Simulated assay, not measured.
Amino acid sequence: MAVIHATKENFDQLISENPLVLVDFWASWCGPCRMVAPIVEELAKTFEENLTVLKVDVDENQELARRYGIMNIPTVILFKDGEKSWSEIGVKPQKFYEEQIRQSL
């Protein structure tokens, strides 16, 4: 499944309707966010059967960023069955995210 660009209008529905959701909170001006972007894209392909991947632009969706206490970007959050399972701030290797996702499957 392709990465979905989520907004406040569809975010809650996407989180509640999908059992495992990875959310990348980012901004276009953020250098580290551009480093995480291809990793997130690859995770969407690798786990396409089991994982929904969302991107939330914090500049366009400040309400969502506030709701989840996003103070630094990139912040990646994994939701399992609608509940926050784990989160990570900054850039990590792809294998780190893969391990976290596999533990939640």
Rank of each mutant, 00 (worst) to 15 (best):
M1V: 11
M1Y: 15
M1A: 12
V3E: 06
V3L: 08
V3R: 08
V3P: 03
A6E: 01
A6M: 08
T7I: 10
N10M: 05
F11C: 02
F11A: 00
D12I: 07
Q13P: 07
L14Q: 09
S16N: 15
E17W: 14
P19Q: 15
P19C: 13
L20M: 06
L20Y: 11
V23L: 08
F25C: 00
W26M: 07
W26Q: 03
A27G: 01
S28L: 14
S28N: 14
S28H: 15
S28M: 15
C30K: 09
C30D: 10
C30A: 11
P32R: 12
P32K: 13
C33A: 08
R34A: 02
R34D: 03
R34I: 06
R34V: 00
M35G: 06
V36I: 10
A37T: 07
A37N: 07
P38M: 04
P38S: 05
I39T: 05
I39L: 10
V40N: 01
E42L: 14
E42Q: 14
E42P: 08
E42G: 12
L43N: 02
L43P: 01
L43S: 00
A44F: 05
K45W: 09
K45Q: 10
T46F: 10
T46M: 11
T46W: 09
E48G: 07
E48A: 15
T52R: 04
T52Y: 02
T52I: 05
V53F: 07
V53E: 00
L54T: 00
K55Y: 06
K55T: 04
V56T: 01
V56M: 02
V56I: 02
V56D: 00
V58F: 06
D59N: 10
E60A: 11
N61E: 12
E63R: 11
L64C: 06
L64G: 01
A65S: 03
A65N: 03
A65T: 04
R66Y: 15
R67C: 09
R67A: 12
Y68H: 10
Y68W: 15
I73A: 02
I73K: 04
P74E: 03
T75N: 07
I77N: 01
L78Y: 04
K80A: 01
D81H: 13
D81E: 13
G82I: 06
E83Q: 13
E83P: 05
E83L: 11
K84P: 05
W86E: 05
S87T: 10
S87W: 12
E88Q: 14
K92Q: 07
K95G: 15
F96E: 09
F96H: 09
F96I: 13
Y97D: 00
Y97I: 03
Y97A: 02
E98M: 09
E98T: 06
E99A: 14
Q100H: 14
I101R: 02
I101T: 02
R102E: 11
L105V: 06
L105N: 04
L105S: 10
